[in-house]
Design a binder for these strands. Structure first.
Length: 847
RNA sequence: GCCGAAGUGGCGGAAUUGGCAGACGCGCUACAUUCAGGGUGUAGUGCCCGUCAGGGCGUGGAGGUUCGAGUCCUCUCUUCGGCACCA
């Protein structure tokens, strides 16, 4: 072996051999256990960044470990290749987005290969080719046929920088997810929606199956879906042939309702304006409050504002007429856009009613208050209300509530909902925060929505046989005005598939999150052209056993992909409801306290790091610097340390390799434990080796604390180094040394594959470590033979005694009590109790 | 406000079921290597007192359970993430 470590040369050599031997290719084999390791596919932005490297280093360690364990491992990668950055670059430069995209893909593929990730490159998928996106169109049409894709005019989120519509999931703090400084505007547009709300309950219920997903992701999704059970109640408007439905989760408080609040753009407002004695004033008020409510969404210290409509509505439970107000905190899009105001028991209502001098009536008291002290005034108003400083929002016991007084909140909700249903003025309902997924984008670089508008036949889907609707190439991209595709007459003009008459194509494209909602199915047979997926291949490889990616997709991609799988199940394409058995979300790579980004100028280029330290060092550092789920703070000194360690390992093996090439590694002989004939130094060496192996093996199964795995390999390497004298002196035989070195190399193989393969070869083997079975640790060899047991007196450490691991309690007790330090601290006391934890510690309790 | 995660040396972090707090690495200090620098090697490195021996303190804070608590319980503070006048 070369005496010095040259990562560039070694890595190039092994990458070439891995490719030549097709080492990472996997095909279905019913005779073998399969494992599908999936990492989130990158957007081809030009260069991979450290976040990718971290993500893929984790996945690669797992994929390599499982292959060595004998699994048939599917480990693919692809490109989320449609999207705005390429289109924007194209607008600036006048070149076509595909030029950027494909050249970036080539470049980034080379970078991933430079890092030596073990992907099956035959399965590479790019979402921007017609062979892929035609199936987006196919899914869209299938959904349209089932009423899951529909078109409606609605107020949508519009980003002026993106010049397109955003899904609710893409709005962050009122701003665009890509432009954190750009407020999202509202626009009224005809848009295509996917009916994800039809699966709201399934998305919640099926979480029961997702026991190996991180709780925080499930919590975020639960939050996002926002299911709440309540009731709708009809309030007739006095003097008009109209009524309004309110939604409440607290029907038990309805006797405390002293007003009704309407969203400023509630449909009923037009009727009110028409019937109002002062229509113009009312319209102006509504408009003013609507404007303030839009502002308010972005303002933390937003003030509640409203105005009376001049109308009253009747509470069907007690027949009482209460004023109807417009209020700026009531949302049109949630519930019915109207709420009953119960100021005594809802903090928002309390603030509003206090500000405008509306009545406040207590109808719920804490259980503890029942019978204790005077009851609230019969009508609950006056004194009680003026004493209130905030709403009592908890459950309790009903008072001032007619026939329901005395009931507990929970029971009252049930009874009152039932009574409302029987009497026909209300019903129990469930509301979701989740909205249907708006997928229309007024942009060019995406999947054309396969729909045709015919003046005679209406909206007609493109026939399946005409798919794909190919994205035309000759488009002048300006980023201005309406959808770019609308400027291509030969694209727009089409014959109606139904009547043959002149018709027009839809010119919007799909949200790119559609592309990534099912790409991981496509990997199982990326070339199939008769269907989106190959059912047989999917049956073999699915579910994804392990998905790894960033937490930032918790409620975007990770909810869409679940939705798509359920649709695919209902289309008969797959037989399961959840695609991913286990999810792992890795932390971000940050530097100087901030996420790496070009604008902050704190980006560390992985390719430059590979050139300087080698891919193995970069990957090792990514795994060693922090546990994988936590954020990792990049440190230049840290990667130096990783590189130094690899150097030490290289020199360690190289120093002995020549002598060990022809030697076969020491094997435990038949007897249990098999340590017969080993010297003390040999036992010590093998113990450390097998302890390391045990730790890494157990850790890879569940815990994934790669940082501690790497630490153990460092300890093993240090231990071998420390035994150099014993090796020189011959008290460690070559066979035993070889065994320890092999364990070191094979353990490292899942983290630093190039170096490990080189060292493996140096030790006299041919071929990659990936073809070697993961070694089994020997529990007997790993067991300590002599233990150093701490002895405490009254919980304070006073001495340590060295005893054989096999020592019994009696022996340990005698040894502990004989210890001079212990006797010193026991002087003048009498021993009350001695606690002996075998193999662990002794605690002497004395007074 | 609701939900979730997390607080341990100068730094990243270890401590899997309650049992030696600080593994491993970085940084730092000293020494060595005929040593320009870098590299490499050896030793040391939680804090305080002490020349040593040794002693005391110590896992955000306050209580508690226990022979024994970073770990369990109660309260509390702080930080980060998600949702948010969602009725």
């Amino acid at each position: 072996m070369d005496p010095s470590y040259d990562p560039q040369q070694i890595e190039a050599k092994w990458q070439e051999r891995w490719a030549r031997e097709k080492l990472f290719e996997a095909d279905p084999d019913p005779a073998r256990r399969k494992y599908y390791v999936l990492e989130m596919l990158p957007y081809p932005s030009g260069d991979i960044h450290m976040g990718h490297v971290r993500n893929y280093s984790i996945g690669d360690a797992l994929a390599r470990y499982l292959r060595m364990l004998g699994y048939n491992v599917l480990h693919p990668i692809g490109w989320d290749a449609f999207g705005l950055p390429a289109e924007n670059a194209a607008i600036k430069s006048g070149r076509h987005p595909s030029e950027f995209t494909f050249s970036y893909i080539d470049r980034m593929r080379g970078q991933l290969q430079r890092l030596g990730f073990s992907y099956d490159w035959r399965r590479e998928v790019a979402s921007c080719v017609p062979e892929y996106y035609r199936w987006n169109q196919w899914f869209f049409i299938k959904m349209f046929e089932r009423g899951l894709a529909y078109r409606k005019k609605s107020r949508v989120n519009w980003c002026a920088k993106c010049e397109t519509v955003l899904a609710n999931e893409q709005v962050v703090n009122g701003c665009c997810w890509r432009h954190e400084d750009t407020l999202v505007e509202e626009r009224e547009l005809e848009q295509w929606f996917l009916r994800i709300t039809a699966y709201a309950d399934a998305l919640l219920d099926d979480m029961k199956e997702m026991v190996r997903w991180p709780e925080r992701v499930l919590a975020m999704q639960r939050n996002w879906i926002g299911k709440s059970a309540g009731a709708e109640v009809e309030f007739p408007v006095d003097g008009l042939e109209e009524s309004m439905r309110i939604f409440t989760t607290r029907i038990d408080t309805i006797f405390g309702c002293t007003a009704v609040f309407l969203a400023p753009d509630h449909p009923l407002m037009e009727k009110f304006v028409a019937a109002s004695p002062a229509p113009d004033a009312l319209r102006r008020e509504a408009e003013r409050i609507r404007a303030s409510s839009l502002q308010a969404r972005l303002d933390v210290n937003f003030r509640k504002e409203g105005a009376p409509t001049g109308f009253t509505a009747r509470n069907p439970f007690n027949g009482e007429s209460v004023p109807v107000w417009i209020a700026n905190f009531v949302l049109t899009g949630y519930g019915t856009g109207a709420v009953m105001a119960v100021p005594a028991h809802d903090q928002r209502d309390f603030e509003f009613c206090s500000a405008y001098g509306l009545k406040i009536r207590t109808v719920i008291v804490p259980e503890s208050a029942v019978g204790a002290g005077p009851n609230p005034p019969a009508n609950g108003e006056g004194a009680a209300s003026s004493a209130l400083t905030k709403a009592f929002t908890e459950d309790g016991v009903l008072v001032n509530s007619g026939p329901y007084s005395g009931l507990g909140s929970a029971e009252a909700r049930e009874r009152m909902t039932r009574d409302a249903e029987t009497q026909g003025f209300g019903k129990g309902t469930i509301q979701y925060r989740l909205k249907d997924w708006g997928v229309s984008r007024q942009r060019y670089w995406g999947t054309p929505i396969p729909m045709i508008y015919c003046s005679g036949c209406g909206v007609v889907p493109v026939p399946e046989s005409d798919l794909p609707v190919v994205l035309p190439r000759n488009v002048k991209l300006t980023g201005q005005g309406r959808a770019a595709l609308a400027t291509v007459p030969e694209f727009v003009a089409v014959k109606c598939p139904k009547c043959g008459g002149p018709a027009e194509r839809e010119t919007d494209t799909m949200d790119t999150f559609v592309d990534s909602s099912w790409y991981f199915y496509r990997y199982t047979d990326p070339k199939i052209d008769t269907a989106p997926i190959n059912r047989e291949a999917v049956k073999y490889w699915f579910p994804v056993d392990q998905y790894i990616g960033g937490i930032e997709h918790a409620i975007l991609h990770l909810i869409y992909m679940r939705f798509f799988t359920k649709v695919m199940r209902d289309l008969g394409l797959v037989e399961f409801s959840e695609p991913v058995a286990r999810l792992f979300t890795q932390g971000m790579v940050i530097k100087d306290g901030a996420k790496m980004s070009k604008s902050k100028g704190n980006v560390v280029d992985p390719v430059a790091m590979c050139a300087r330290y080698g891919a193995d060092a970069v990957r090792l550092y990514m795994l060693f610097a922090a546990p994988p789920e936590k954020d990792l703070d990049w440190s230049d000194a840290g990667i130096e340390g990783a590189a130094r360690f690899l150097n030490r390992v290289y020199r360690l093996v190289a120093r002995h390799a020549g002598r060990l090439r022809g030697v076969s590694a020491w094997q435990a002989s038949g007897d249990a434990g098999g340590s017969n004939g080993l010297s003390a130094a040999e036992r010590r060496l093998l113990r450390k080796a097998h302890q390391t192996l045990r730790h890494v093996t157990e850790d890879m199964e569940e815990r994934w604390h790669f940082n501690t795995d790497v630490a153990l390999t460092m300890e093993l390497s240090n231990e071998i180094g420390a035994l150099e004298d014993a090796i020189e002196a011959g008290s460690i035989r070559a066979e035993v040394l070889k065994s320890a070195l092999e364990i070191l190399v094979l353990t490292l193989a899942i983290f630093v594959p190039h170096l490990s393969d080189e060292l493996w070869e140096g030790l006299g083997h041919s071929g990659s470590t990936l073809r070697v079975a993961w070694p089994k640790f020997d529990a007997g060899l790993a067991a300590e033979e002599e233990l150093e047991i701490p002895v405490q007196v009254n919980g304070k450490l006073r001495a340590r005694i060295g005893v054989p691991a096999s020592a019994g309690e009696d022996e340990i007790r005698l040894r502990a009590l004989a210890e001079p330090k212990v006797r010193e601290h026991l002087a003048g006391l009498h021993v009350v109790r001695i606690i002996i934890v075998p193999q662990k510690l002794v605690n002497i309790v004395a007074k």
